[in-house]
Write a protein that binds this DNA or RNA. Sequence first.
DNA 1: TGAAATGTTGGGGCG
DNA 2: ACGCCCCAACATTTC
Length: 472
Amino acid sequence: MSKAIFWFRQDLRLFDNPALYKACQNHSEIILLYIQDKPLNKVKKTAQSWWLHHSLKKLSESLQAHQLSLTLKTGQVEEIFQELLSTNQIDAVYWNRCYEPMQIDRDQKLKSWLKQKKVHTESFNGFLLNEPWEVLNQQGGHYKVFTPFWKQCLKQMNIKPEAHITQWPKALNCDGENLEDWQLLPENPNWAQDFSSYWSPGEEGAQQKLQAFINNKLYHYKEARNNPAVQATSCLSPHLHFGEISPWKIYRVCCQYQLQHPEHDLNTQHFMSEMGWREFSYSLLYYFPKLTTDNFRPEFDQFPWHQYPEGLERWKHGQTGYPIVDAGMRELWHTGTMHNRVRMIVASFLIKDLFIDWREGAKWFDLTLLDADMASNYASWQWVAGSGADAAPYFRIFNPCLQGEKFDPQGAYVRTWVKELELVPNKWIHHPWDAPSGSLGITLGLDYPHPIVDHNQARHKALAYYQKIKGQ
DNA sequence: TGAAATGTTGGGGCG
DNA sequence: ACGCCCCAACATTTC
């Protein structure tokens, strides 16, 4: 009778989970562990706390169907393993790798400690299509430009067979904590009250989202993905963040679709390349662990960011007076997500219209987004700022009115999230301040704010700033 | 995965 | 019929 611990982290699924598969295959008794490694009173409640609560609950329920249970523990990982090892005869420990710098560090230390204790320890890739250290350019370095990176990924992609567990080990009983005691759900105020009408955390919800996407959305993904009023995107990102679905499952389903529907090949390719950006971001984070704090391009260290707390607050709460920006920020607050096109618009606005440091924007997204991944979030903010690898050129400044007119021509998205503009005619929906007096049906400055800045002026200022740091 | 400024072209009005 | 101007419409350059 050999005994193992399986440590759940960002892989809260039973299907296609390589480390769990291996643990179940090789051992007859198992502890299924999840660790909250910050003291409970220090856990910051974020949108993702809400998701984590529901995801762990779902996971625990699906384990019960196999007469297994999820053991919850709070504390330092090494102390928890110490305790588990001393009270049980543990032969082996399994997990799937995580890729944030602190996690890598923590896991390395634990692994060598376990090896010292003569406990067989194995880690797997359950999170990415390719390991960051396996995708290298001709010179043996990491890619700094997306297109060649993704080409190389596709070239060397080796599709892993589905890992489906048929024989489950017996539960090795051990004391755990109560999920309710972790108090992950927000209250007073419950800002997550609407989340459950948009999301179903857990493995089953993830599979449903994937099916719905393949059946109803993938065929016109390339065009429709840019229209924020249409639900044309997969909405898989939070599921991927928590590992409720494996990226290979998505990849395999896409490859199959590609064969069956060659006429939609461009759409399929485009969707897969979005998975590619996720991979690219992880590669950047792996080779540049300071991605969250430091500019990838050092000349941006000289950028004269403004201290503008009032502007930041108005941005966060969707009160900038630019309808498409405010709609995005309010969608984020109410649903825990924001359409990707609008993320670029609000990010460009914070950086290039308000001149607020991209780190402030990234921090707010960390708190409020259900899908916030350290890699994708920070790589994308640096991309917009122009300070990142393969970033948008500095002169690419979004005009929020034109972006609105181009991607939300009927104003449907704006009207969904900015109710006070519901009756404003299409002509003025993206720039109400230009309307002749009396034609809006509302009063600017009373029902809806005046624009916080003049975009045209801000644009010229931004160009001057960027010009100044160029070549430094 | 931009947008503004500037340049070019061509049709129509008009003397 | 011709030259001239105006100005959309489109193309190119610049930030």
